[in-house]
Design a protein around this nucleic acid. Structure first.
Length: 149
DNA sequence: TGTGAGCGT
Protein backbone atom coordinates (compact mmCIF):
# COMPACT_ATOMS: atom_id res chain seq x y z
CA UNK A 1 0.00 0.00 0.00
CA UNK A 2 0.94 3.63 0.01
CA UNK A 3 3.16 4.05 2.98
CA UNK A 4 4.94 7.13 1.75
CA UNK A 5 4.55 9.50 4.63
CA UNK A 6 7.31 11.83 3.56
CA UNK A 7 5.04 14.30 1.90
CA UNK A 8 3.19 16.41 4.37
CA UNK A 9 0.27 18.21 2.85
CA UNK A 10 -1.71 20.54 5.00
CA UNK A 11 -5.14 21.72 3.96
CA UNK A 12 -4.97 25.19 2.58
CA UNK A 13 -1.22 25.23 2.54
CA UNK A 14 1.55 24.18 0.27
CA UNK A 15 3.15 20.82 0.37
CA UNK A 16 6.05 20.78 2.72
CA UNK A 17 8.30 18.50 0.76
CA UNK A 18 11.44 20.27 -0.26
CA UNK A 19 10.88 23.42 1.67
CA UNK A 20 13.02 23.67 4.71
CA UNK A 21 10.43 25.23 6.90
CA UNK A 22 11.37 26.31 10.35
CA UNK A 23 9.10 25.12 13.07
CA UNK A 24 6.89 28.08 13.71
CA UNK A 25 4.36 26.33 15.83
CA UNK A 26 5.99 25.78 19.15
CA UNK A 27 4.13 23.29 21.21
CA UNK A 28 3.55 24.50 24.70
CA UNK A 29 4.19 21.69 27.11
CA UNK A 30 2.19 21.87 30.22
CA UNK A 31 2.56 19.79 33.31
CA UNK A 32 -0.64 17.95 32.78
CA UNK A 33 0.01 14.61 34.35
CA UNK A 34 -3.34 12.98 34.05
CA UNK A 35 -6.79 13.89 32.90
CA UNK A 36 -8.20 12.95 36.24
CA UNK A 37 -7.29 16.35 37.63
CA UNK A 38 -10.57 17.93 36.79
CA UNK A 39 -10.70 21.57 37.80
CA UNK A 40 -13.41 21.87 40.37
CA UNK A 41 -12.98 25.62 40.56
CA UNK A 42 -14.10 26.11 36.99
CA UNK A 43 -17.51 27.70 36.62
CA UNK A 44 -18.56 25.08 34.12
CA UNK A 45 -17.66 21.63 33.02
CA UNK A 46 -14.40 21.38 31.06
CA UNK A 47 -15.02 21.30 27.37
CA UNK A 48 -13.01 21.76 24.24
CA UNK A 49 -14.40 25.23 23.84
CA UNK A 50 -12.91 28.10 25.73
CA UNK A 51 -14.58 31.36 26.54
CA UNK A 52 -11.98 34.04 26.21
CA UNK A 53 -12.95 37.39 27.62
CA UNK A 54 -10.98 40.54 28.14
CA UNK A 55 -9.89 40.71 24.55
CA UNK A 56 -8.63 43.95 23.19
CA UNK A 57 -10.87 45.67 20.71
CA UNK A 58 -8.12 45.50 18.19
CA UNK A 59 -7.85 41.76 18.50
CA UNK A 60 -8.86 39.68 15.55
CA UNK A 61 -9.41 35.98 15.12
CA UNK A 62 -6.13 35.43 13.39
CA UNK A 63 -4.11 36.81 16.25
CA UNK A 64 -6.21 34.96 18.74
CA UNK A 65 -5.75 31.69 16.98
CA UNK A 66 -2.06 32.30 16.65
CA UNK A 67 -1.85 32.94 20.34
CA UNK A 68 -3.73 29.80 21.28
CA UNK A 69 -2.44 27.42 18.65
CA UNK A 70 0.71 26.95 20.68
CA UNK A 71 -1.16 24.88 23.21
CA UNK A 72 -2.80 22.51 20.82
CA UNK A 73 -4.76 22.14 17.67
CA UNK A 74 -7.26 24.94 17.37
CA UNK A 75 -10.18 24.04 15.19
CA UNK A 76 -12.19 27.20 15.32
CA UNK A 77 -11.78 30.68 16.68
CA UNK A 78 -14.64 33.10 16.82
CA UNK A 79 -14.78 36.60 18.13
CA UNK A 80 -18.12 38.19 18.83
CA UNK A 81 -18.58 41.53 17.20
CA UNK A 82 -21.21 44.10 17.88
CA UNK A 83 -23.84 44.16 15.21
CA UNK A 84 -24.32 47.89 15.50
CA UNK A 85 -20.88 49.33 15.66
CA UNK A 86 -19.13 46.32 14.21
CA UNK A 87 -16.55 46.47 16.90
CA UNK A 88 -15.35 43.53 18.88
CA UNK A 89 -17.37 42.84 21.97
CA UNK A 90 -14.25 41.87 23.82
CA UNK A 91 -14.82 38.16 24.06
CA UNK A 92 -14.62 35.16 21.85
CA UNK A 93 -14.49 31.41 21.71
CA UNK A 94 -11.59 29.10 20.98
CA UNK A 95 -12.19 25.53 19.98
CA UNK A 96 -9.58 22.91 20.74
CA UNK A 97 -9.35 19.39 19.47
CA UNK A 98 -8.34 17.92 22.76
CA UNK A 99 -9.77 18.80 26.08
CA UNK A 100 -6.35 18.60 27.61
CA UNK A 101 -5.10 21.32 25.31
CA UNK A 102 -7.99 23.52 26.20
CA UNK A 103 -7.28 23.02 29.85
CA UNK A 104 -3.64 23.75 29.28
CA UNK A 105 -4.38 26.88 27.32
CA UNK A 106 -6.81 28.06 29.92
CA UNK A 107 -4.40 27.43 32.74
CA UNK A 108 -1.57 29.12 30.90
CA UNK A 109 -3.29 32.07 29.29
CA UNK A 110 -5.76 32.94 31.99
CA UNK A 111 -4.74 36.24 33.49
CA UNK A 112 -2.02 36.84 30.94
CA UNK A 113 -2.09 40.13 29.13
CA UNK A 114 -2.64 40.01 25.42
CA UNK A 115 -2.28 43.27 23.55
CA UNK A 116 -2.26 45.10 26.81
CA UNK A 117 -5.42 43.52 28.15
CA UNK A 118 -5.54 40.74 30.71
CA UNK A 119 -7.36 37.70 29.46
CA UNK A 120 -10.11 36.01 31.39
CA UNK A 121 -10.48 32.49 30.19
CA UNK A 122 -13.03 29.97 31.26
CA UNK A 123 -14.79 27.04 29.71
CA UNK A 124 -17.59 28.01 27.43
CA UNK A 125 -21.12 27.20 28.32
CA UNK A 126 -22.79 24.51 26.36
CA UNK A 127 -25.02 26.66 24.26
CA UNK A 128 -27.28 24.47 22.21
CA UNK A 129 -29.78 26.17 19.98
CA UNK A 130 -33.19 24.74 20.53
CA UNK A 131 -32.11 22.91 23.61
CA UNK A 132 -34.31 22.39 26.61
CA UNK A 133 -34.32 25.28 28.99
CA UNK A 134 -34.36 24.12 32.53
CA UNK A 135 -36.00 26.67 34.72
CA UNK A 136 -35.75 26.06 38.44
CA UNK A 137 -39.10 26.46 40.06
CA UNK A 138 -40.24 26.79 43.60
CA UNK A 139 -43.19 24.53 43.11
CA UNK A 140 -41.71 21.98 45.43
CA UNK A 141 -41.20 24.48 48.20
CA UNK A 142 -44.71 23.96 49.38
CA UNK A 143 -44.13 20.29 49.44
CA UNK A 144 -40.87 20.74 51.27
CA UNK A 145 -42.28 23.14 53.78
CA UNK A 146 -45.34 21.16 54.56
CA UNK A 147 -43.91 17.74 54.74
CA UNK A 148 -46.26 15.28 56.22
CA UNK A 149 -45.03 12.39 58.22
C1' DT B 1 -15.02 58.50 19.88
C1' DG B 2 -14.73 57.02 24.83
C1' DT B 3 -16.17 52.33 27.88
C1' DG B 4 -14.09 46.79 30.12
C1' DA B 5 -18.42 42.70 32.83
C1' DG B 6 -19.42 38.86 30.50
C1' DC B 7 -21.17 33.42 27.37
C1' DG B 8 -22.46 33.28 21.03
C1' DT B 9 -24.88 32.28 14.95
Amino acid sequence: MMSNMNTLILPGKKALTNIQTPILSFRYFCSQTSSSSAPSSSPSAPNNKLFVAGLSWSMDERSLKDAFSSFGEVTEVRIMYDKDSGRSRGFGFVNFTNENDAQCAKDAMDGKALLGRPLRISFALDKVRGGPVVIPRLSNVNNMMGQRS
